[in-house]
Nucleic acid binder design. Sequence first.
DNA 1: GGCTGTGAAACATTTCACAGCA
DNA 2: TGCTGTGAAATGTTTCACAGCC
Lengths: 210, 210
Amino acid sequence: MPDGGDRGISRATVARLPRYLGVLDDLGGHQATISSDDLAAATDVTAANVRRDLSHLGFPGVRGVGYEVERLRSLLRRELGLTADVGVAIIGAGNLGRALANYGGFRRRGFRVAGLYDIDVTKVGTEVAGVPIRSLADLDTDVVAADIAIAIIATPATVAQEVAERVAGTGVGSILNFAPVRLRLSEGVEVRQVDLSTELQILSYYRSRR
Amino acid sequence: MPDGGDRGISRATVARLPRYLGVLDDLGGHQATISSDDLAAATDVTAANVRRDLSHLGFPGVRGVGYEVERLRSLLRRELGLTADVGVAIIGAGNLGRALANYGGFRRRGFRVAGLYDIDVTKVGTEVAGVPIRSLADLDTDVVAADIAIAIIATPATVAQEVAERVAGTGVGSILNFAPVRLRLSEGVEVRQVDLSTELQILSYYRSRR
DNA sequence: GGCTGTGAAACATTTCACAGCA
DNA sequence: TGCTGTGAAATGTTTCACAGCC
C-alpha cells in the first residue's frame, strides 16, 4: 500500500477516518492537540495504528506533544470529500427513510439532506424533520437543481433494484443501499451495501461461541 | 488462521458467511448444488476465496459438481448460531426502531423479534408489524421470559449509553448499536456498532476521487 | 520526558495455479 | 471435462520496538 501525499490510502485506513473525525468533532475545541494514545483510546484502535494511518495521510504530528486537532480535522474532512457540503437524497419515505432523515449525524458531518423521495402521492408535499418529501418523478431535475451527489436507497427490497437503476440514470454516481438486495448496476456507479441483517448474523456468530 | 473443524474461522470469513447464506436462501430449492464460481458471482467474492472459506469450515464439495446447497445452508446456519430461533429486543420505538421491526430480513434468517421497548407510555401497549411495544421497565423480566439473546439499540444518541448499561444489566450478552455513540460497557458484553454516518462518509471518500 | 515516525517482523487475507478426483 | 482442495506466493494490515525530535 502506498503512502505519503494523498492517494492510495488502504481500505482499512479509510474505514477508520470517520472514527477519528467523529472523536475530533466531539472534542468541541477543548483541546488544541491530541496524542495518538488518546485518539486510539477513543476509537478502539491501537496507538501504533493511529500513527501509521496519519503517516499514510502525510499528516505530521509534533514529537512529545501530539497532533494539532484543528489541522487534523480539516485534513480528514478534505480526505473524506466533505469540504463543500454534499447533497444527499433519500429514496423511500417509509420508516427507514424517515429515520434517516431524522438522523442528525448526516448534517453534523457535511451532508445536506436535500429530499425524501417517494411514489406515494399522499406523502408528497409533506416534510419530515425539515426535509421535504418529493415525488420520485422529480428526482431527475432535482439532482441537478439541488446538486445531489449521493442517493440512499431505503425502499422495500422488492423495488430496490428497479429504483436503483432509475437513480443511476439521473447521473447520481454513488448509492448507499439499505435494502437487503445486492444491486447490479452498470460500471461507473459506486454502490455500498449496508445489510442490517448481516450485522445481526455476525453478532450472532460471536455470541454462539462463548 | 486455523482451519478445519469448527473454531477459529477468520473474521474476514465470518463476515462473508451471511452473504453465502443469503444467496442460498434466495435459491428456493431450485438447485441441488452450486459451484464456487456461481456462489462467487452472486456474492462479489472470488471463486478461490469461496473455496478457501468453505474449506476453512471443513465443508466438502464434490469435484466436478460443486457444493450441496441444503447441506451448506444447514452448516452456515449452525455456524452463525441460528439453529434455534434467536430472540431479539429492539430498544427505542422511534422511526428507526419501527423500521427495524418492519424489516423482514430478521425473521427471514432465524431471528424472532420479541418486542420493541420504549419509555413513552403513549406508545406502550400498541404494536408495530405484529411486534408489541412494551415498557423498558419490563425488559428485565422479558429477557428471561421471552428468551432474549440480543438487544438492538435504536434510541437517540443522547440516551444510548445509559440505556445500554441498563440493557447489559438484564443479562443480555450481545448488543447491536445503531446510535452514533461508541458504547463503553463492562467486559462480557459483545457490542457491535453500526454507524450510518460512517458508511456515508466512506462512500463520500470513494466518490471524491474519481 | 513524552510522543511521533517508521523499519522490520508478525500476522492475516487473498490470489494463483494446478494436482487430483468424480 | 469440470470443479474442488490446497500448497505456495503475493498482497494487505497490524504490531513491535526504538531512534529521533521537541
